[in-house]
């Protein structure tokens, strides 16, 4: 019996009179690899920003399993992070270390142990050689790995990613998804937003198809045989 990591019940969210999310209910189980898909403006980013506590207020209930999914054990790779100022004067090590700040109380200084954690995650993701390189001098794929390292350095139980591969070419994208799959196999629950179901279908075990309300939620194997997939690709049924 799997534990629910996140339970969302009857979530509604509006900007003024514009309802962005309508009656959203679903559960994410421990070890899930959930792909959230939907067209532009469907509320995907809004949904995970609400889950991360970045925007509110909202109606409805969101529960995190305190043992598995408390706030200190969340990793996040935001949308558009790759396009940040290329002149920003920071090394990969400096950027990745910030991922440890959620675990710090009071004075947020790094210890030797923290720098060891940074080195370990860089080695694990195959970018240890980039430790002292300026982040702005890296390729898109290398920056995205560094940002994944920042999200993973605190050993989170849940990892949120918002369109992490949108600026990457297909080969680098595949490599990135393979790393995520490996992380998922190690027990980390992954919630991944993508506008392209074809590129994530072989990695995810569940799909949440969103268009301001839930159109489909369940295993990918069910989704590929459902009538909702036709709607996703804009195919209208004749009957």
């Amino acid at each position: 019996m799997m534990n629910n990591v996140i339970t969302v019940e009857n979530l509604n969210f509006s900007f003024g009179k514009n309802q962005i999310l309508k009656d959203i209910s679903f559960q994410v189980e421990e070890g899930d690899y959930l792909g959230i898909v939907g067209p532009n403006g469907s509320g995907k980013t809004t949904l995970i920003k609400i889950l991360l506590g970045l925007i509110g207020p909202y109606e409805g209930k969101i529960r995190f399993n305190d043992e598995i999914g408390n706030k200190n054990s969340i990793g996040y790779v935001p949308q558009g992070a790759i396009k940040r100022d290329r002149l920003f004067p920071a090394t990969v090590e400096e950027i990745v270390a910030t991922g440890l700040l959620s675990q710090k109380k009071g004075m947020k200084f790094y210890s030797k142990e923290d720098y060891r954690k940074v080195e370990n995650i860089l080695k694990k993701l195959g970018i240890y050689g980039l430790k002292n390189r300026k982040i702005g001098n890296l390729s898109g794929g290398q920056i995205q790995r560094a940002l994944l390292a920042r999200a993973m350095v605190s050993k989170p139980n849940i990892l949120f990613l918002d369109e992490p591969t949108s600026a990457l070419d297909p080969k680098i994208r595949e490599d990135f998804y393979s790393i995520l799959k490996e992380i998922n196999r190690e027990g980390v629950t992954i919630i991944l937003i993508s506008h392209d179901i074809l590129s994530i279908k072989k990695y995810v075990n569940k799909i949440l198809y969103l268009n301001r309300e839930i159109i489909f939620y369940g295993p990918y194997d069910q989704f590929k045989n459902s009538k909702e997939i036709a709607q996703y690709f804009g195919i209208t049924s004749r009957d």
Partner: peptide
């Protein structure tokens, strides 16, 4: 430093 590089990520932290 965290806020200057990525304010949204810093808020999540």
């Amino acid at each position: 430093f965290a806020i200057t590089y990525d304010e949204e990520f810093a808020n999540v932290l």
